[in-house]
């Protein structure tokens, strides 16, 4: 419960920080949008329209209230610079975000479904055959994948699977009309990349979690009592390993989400990370804020889930001292 409220406080604090970035901006939004040559009355009108003439605290709560109703305001780009032009081409931030958020969730979801089972199997088997050649090569390879930046992995995949052996497309452009099979085909490379970059972490963490458990006394006891290798693992080790493993998964999903920003950029995939990078270029703050808020709250929630699983699966932690 305490943990839950702490998470809420964190998101709340971050929303304050995000919002206050408005006021850190050199100069003023209105002048920023209209340009240097704008007349005073035009600036004043726009300030009134954006609500910039109200005190910051009022503006913050207005904004927060709107966010809760799913209204992130409207994007700066495309806003008409000509005064009195009513044909405003500015788009609602929500309209920009929702389809891209779906794309990102699809990408990370598929990657997670691939990465989680694979890395669990690899991690557990590496722990069982500890210090064998299999284990050494697996941990060695995972160290390399962990140490390479996302774009390195991504470009190696492009080089091998898209240009030298053209199996998959380099640019994964999907739209509403794409069928599911088409989506899988087009997102194959970004999915592989995301899978590989998180698999290294997950595998190493699973391996050390299992090794920790296997070295405890009750496992020794089970072995001595004549349980088979299979029994020791499935009956004795796994129930206690779920807590660390599920924490590993939750942490790595959060990590994958952040990694998707770079991967989407490489493959020009229309996801939320790509949108955020583009908006940072254009200093389109409402969009950046909305994306950042989504990223941060997902990240906080995933970490919260990791903590909660840890607490639930270990009854001793349910009753604090």
């Amino acid at each position: 419960m305490l943990r839950l409220s702490l998470g809420l406080v964190t998101v709340f604090a971050f929303s304050v920080i995000i919002f206050s970035t408005f006021s850190f901006l050199p100069g003023d939004f209105a002048t920023e949008i209209l340009g240097q040559s704008a007349t005073k009355s035009a600036v004043k009108a726009l300030r009134a329209e954006l609500g910039l003439d109200k005190p910051p605290v009022t503006r913050y709560f207005d904004w927060l209230g709107n966010v809760f109703q799913g209204d992130f305001g409207s994007s700066f780009s495309g806003r008409s610079k000509v005064q009195g032009d009513q044909g405003d081409r500015s788009r609602e931030v929500v309209g920009l975000i929702v389809p891209r958020l779906k794309n990102t969730l699809f990408l990370t979801g598929v990657a997670a479904m691939l990465a989680i089972p694979l890395s669990l199997i690899l991690g557990i088997s590496a722990a069982l055959y500890r210090n064998s050649y299999y284990d050494r090569s697996a941990t060695g390879v995972s160290l390399v994948t962990v140490s390479s930046p996302e774009f390195f992995t991504a470009y190696i995949f492009i080089l091998l699977l898209a240009t030298l052996f053209p199996v998959f497309p380099t640019i994964s452009n999907v739209d509403e009309a794409s069928t599911l099979a088409e989506r899988f085909y087009r997102t194959a490379l970004p999915v592989f990349t995301l899978t590989l970059i998180t698999m290294g972490h997950m595998m190493r963490m699973t391996r050390s979690a299992i090794i920790n458990i296997l070295s405890s006394e009750y496992i020794e006891m089970a072995k001595l009592s004549g349980a088979s290798r299979y029994e020791v693992i499935v009956k004795h080790a796994l129930p206690n390993a779920w807590a660390p493993i599920s924490q590993v998964i939750a942490i790595n999903l959060a990590y994958m989400l952040i990694g998707s920003v770079v991967v989407e950029y490489v493959f020009n995939y229309q996801g939320i990370g790509r949108l955020m990078v583009g908006s940072v270029y254009n200093r389109d703050l409402p969009v950046v804020q909305a994306c950042a808020l989504i990223f941060a709250s997902t990240y906080v929630i995933l970490n919260l889930i990791a903590d909660l699983i840890g607490i639930i699966s270990n009854p001793r932690l349910l009753y604090p001292k």
Binding site: L6, G7, V9, T10, A13, F14, I17, I18, T21, F24, L25, A254, L257, I258, V261, M276, V277, S279, V280, R283, L285, V288, Q289, A292, F295, A296, Y299, V300, N303
Partner: peptide
């Protein structure tokens, strides 16, 4: 520090860089 650590560094840097 708890609050700062709960937010992904890269996203935070994004925002700050787009402002400053």
């Amino acid at each position: 520090v708890d609050t700062l650590m709960a937010i992904p560094v890269m996203i935070f840097t994004f925002i700050l860089l787009s402002v400053f």
